[in-house]
Design a binder for these strands. Structure first.
Lengths: 335, 335
DNA sequence: GTCGCCAATGCAATCGTTTGCCATGACATT
DNA sequence: AATGTCATGGCAAACGATTGCATTGGCGAC
């Protein structure tokens, strides 16, 4: 039925051990060139595919990587997963994608299941600023790289966008347009994405010597949470003329609230998002936002993880550059 | 380091074989209740996690499912993958997601890699109307379920939306609005999605006793291909007042072309999409489209596949209902 | 001609489970 | 008391690959 190493060995007239060495490029040198050729030919002829389970059992490596995502349906993540896949595949690895829905218990179960599967490492997009589960795993020497979000203590390798720089660019853009009352619609502060963008906002305002406008905190990075939190911003006195949103979904929620209040964007209020999820350019109005290199985040994270599996090293933090995409949701304030 | 079955057996004072039987609910009856309890307790105390690789090697099952997607970045697929994951996880399976980019050679390699990993089955979103590779696999008794797209001969189980019904609803909607010159912007005809929507369009028009307007064929289900093919439609004489697009991306391409020609939607031309990908409601104009139950497609496909792995059966075809979502891209024709 | 070295390959244990088969002993039956 | 039955649990062989160690034989050195 399925052809095994022994079949190949028999066909080539050698011992299975020898066939194994001939097939593995790393050990091929321990076999004479002629037999190596014979084995390769036999393997090819029979269509031999090594059984990864057997190999993994013996070598204690599964060539499998666990990918933990909050929700694959969030448009931020598919490009990251693609990037990961692009690196993993050619290296002989496969990625097991699972959704945690930000549910701690579920996350714990999934990690356990993947470790039982002997996953060689993890790419994790579900980190919170303090995340005991992840720290435990790192202490247990489980290779792991965080993407997009990281933890407060820098003990875990991570690949994230340079959020501070993105927020700085957003603020600079708004100031250049003439805005003086600039607010922030912040994301959840238990996530580094929410927190560091908030800090960066305060920082950028301080440098510009403008007083920051009021800040509203959304419960989650969702349109609904953004819509709710945005109401505080509209009620502020004086009303801000521009808002830097924690991400695109929050920005869209803010647009909903503006609609609700009969206000216009950008006429009454300029809005900047973050992430540049797809289709933003076709919205009304097309949303100005900070683009992050999603695919590259995935690519770099996968590379870093493979390095880490090869030889454990210190916890690097990789910051990838962002770019402000100016569209029509930002304009000079009404004078 | 890691705790094995033998460790548990030793702790419980029994033979590993006995421990194995005690741990497996299906064989627990062959062990006395007291020893079963002792083994369970020991396993629990030591935090035993069975090694799936070893188990898979012995049982020839990996509890792993290959998921073949053309491109995870296409917003159609993430909800399907989520649905699959929701069923697989609780059943003890994991999904290996890979992107084929519609590249046949790549697809072949990926299938080979996943079979080497002893994948127990496949969920495949990359089917073409004739697809020898898939047929070969089915003949080799590899459990497989197609999603979204299927093949022409019904030899492979599949879960798809009821596209004919969706197109029928679109056409009926346009006719009810008063349109008499209705065209179709068709997708690639080598895919059942493209082909069956095209056939359904002709069929619906025939039933209504209207002459179908000109049909343009896009090379791919992308915005760019839609934009290119749409130019033929605008050049037609008389120009159609409404177009049923093969999917949402083609519809968006059509909107681009309208812009380009200085025409308006829905004033000069009504447009209906297909799939209801996210954010459509926020576009200019919000796009009328046919919603398909993406998550449910994934859920049903996973269920069907697990059934099939349990006991091979005939190739079922599951048609899931669609729903027309009326938004602002359709309106009565200018009189 | 003998010895020793080295390259090439065979041998067998091992990874952690599962499972068919056999051994044991308790109990019932006659 | 001898026999049969049955529940229980031990034994060991798989599953398919990798790898440390042992063996073989060819060749050069003395």
């Amino acid at each position: 039925m399925t052809v095994t190493l022994s079949d190949v060995a028999r066909a080539a007239g050698v011992h299975p051990g020898t066939a194994s060495r001939a097939l593995n490029p790393a050990t091929r040198g321990r076999v004479s060139p002629t037999t190596a050729r014979r084995v390769l030919a036999a393997a090819d002829r029979l269509g031999y595919q090594p059984n990864s389970l057997a190999r993994g059992l013996r070598t204690r490596r599964s060539f499998t990587i666990g990918i933990m995502i909050p929700d694959l349906t969030n448009p931020l993540f598919p490009p990251i997963v693609r990037g990961v896949d692009e690196v993993l595949g050619p290296a002989g690895y496969s990625g097991l994608v699972t959704n945690t829905d930000n549910d701690g218990a579920r996350e714990e179960r999934l990690f356990a299941a993947l470790r039982a599967r002997q996953a060689d490492g993890f790419i994790v997009a579900t980190a919170q600023r303090t995340h005991p589960l992840l720290e435990r795993m790192v202490e247990a020497n489980v290779p792991m790289v965080l993407v997009n979000r990281t933890t407060d203590d820098r003990s875990i390798p991570a690949v994230v966008a340079d959020e501070a720089d993105g927020v700085r660019a957003s603020v600079a853009h708004l100031i250049a347009l003439g805005h003086r009352h600039i607010s922030h619609l912040a994301g959840p502060q238990r996530l580094t994405t929410g927190h560091s963008r908030y800090r960066a906002f305060l920082d950028a305002m301080a440098r510009s010597e403008l007083d920051p406008g009021p800040v509203a905190f959304a419960e989650a990075f969702t349109e609904a949470a953004g819509q709710a939190a945005a109401r505080e911003l509209l009620a502020a006195e004086p009303r801000p003329t521009a808002v830097v949103a924690g991400n695109d979904l929050l920005a869209i929620g803010l647009l909903d609230t503006l609609d609700e209040a009969g206000l216009e964007c950008p006429g009454d209020m300029s809005v900047v998002g973050f992430n540049d999820i797809p289709m933003l350019s076709r919205m009304t109005p097309p949303l100005t936002t900070v683009r992050i290199p999603q695919r590259e985040i995935g690519v770099e994270a996968a590379r870093l993880l493979l390095d880490l599996i090869g030889e454990p090293g210190p916890a690097k933090l990789l910051l990838l550059p962002t770019r402000l995409i100016e569209r029509a949701s930002t304009a000079p304030p009404r004078s």
